[in-house]
Amino acid sequence: MSKIIFNEHQQRVLEANPNVASVSDRAIQYTPEFKIHAVKEYQTGKSPSQIFSESGFDLTVIGSKKATSSLNRWRTTFRTYGEEGFLKERRGKGSTGRPSTNDLSAEKKLEKAEARIKYLEAENELLKKLEALERQAKKRS
């Protein structure tokens, strides 16, 4: 979380920027379109400060470190998920959680089933050995 705390006037100024989705006293949520635009601009050789300044942000208010760290996060997201990473929510209630098994190929499903069977067989063997040891301990006492 940022150490910068935005006052009401700064929040109103930031909210007026079309590249901002919402602002709290400590955080700015940028629009997905701006994030995509910023990453593409960075790839052309522009600096984070230059990108944010050209997009109407006052770097004395948000801080140049915030611009750099935000852009670094967005670049990682862009590299991993592409543009879709900004357009689809991947956190909280909007998240889909574990990847669905419905869209797995038949080979992958079979592979997962075989691994599960192997695990369960090993678990069964362990329980059988444990029962045998318990029986032996009962006979001795």
Rank of each mutant, 00 (worst) to 15 (best):
M1K: 07
I4N: 01
F6C: 08
F6I: 09
F6P: 03
F6Q: 03
F6V: 08
N7E: 05
N7W: 05
N7Y: 05
N7A: 05
E8K: 14
H9N: 13
Q10C: 04
Q10R: 01
V13A: 03
E15W: 06
N17H: 08
N17V: 02
P18M: 06
N19T: 07
N19L: 03
N19E: 12
V20Q: 05
A21E: 15
V23D: 03
V23T: 09
A27R: 14
Q29S: 15
P32Q: 09
P32F: 08
P32M: 09
P32K: 06
F34T: 02
F34N: 01
K35Y: 00
K35V: 01
K35H: 00
I36H: 00
I36F: 05
H37Q: 12
Y42F: 13
Q43Y: 07
T44F: 00
G45A: 04
G45K: 09
K46M: 10
K46Q: 14
S47I: 00
P48E: 00
P48Y: 00
S53M: 08
E54V: 02
S55I: 01
G56N: 06
F57V: 06
D58T: 02
T60Q: 12
V61S: 00
G63C: 03
K65I: 11
K66F: 08
K66I: 04
K66M: 12
A67W: 00
T68F: 11
T68V: 12
S69F: 10
S69Q: 11
S70E: 10
L71R: 01
N72F: 07
R73Q: 14
R73W: 11
W74E: 06
T77Q: 06
T77H: 02
R79S: 12
T80G: 04
Y81V: 02
Y81H: 15
Y81D: 11
G82S: 09
E83I: 12
G85R: 02
G85K: 05
F86I: 03
F86S: 00
K88W: 01
E89A: 13
E89N: 13
R90C: 02
G92M: 02
K93C: 01
G94I: 09
G94L: 09
S95E: 06
S95L: 04
S95Y: 04
T96Y: 03
T96V: 07
G97L: 10
G97K: 10
G97D: 10
R98M: 10
R98T: 08
P99F: 10
P99M: 10
S100K: 06
S100C: 03
D103N: 15
L104K: 11
S105F: 05
E107A: 10
K108A: 15
K108T: 12
L110I: 05
L110A: 12
E111Q: 14
E111I: 02
K112M: 14
K112Y: 12
I117C: 07
K118R: 12
L120W: 12
L120M: 13
A122V: 06
E123M: 03
E123S: 01
N124P: 01
E125C: 05
E125T: 13
L126R: 15
L126A: 11
K128I: 13
L130R: 10
E131S: 11
E131T: 09
E131R: 13
A132R: 14
L133N: 11
L133M: 13
E134R: 14
E134W: 06
R135M: 11
Q136P: 00
A137W: 10
K138M: 04
K139Y: 04
R140L: 11
R140M: 09
R140A: 11
S141C: 08
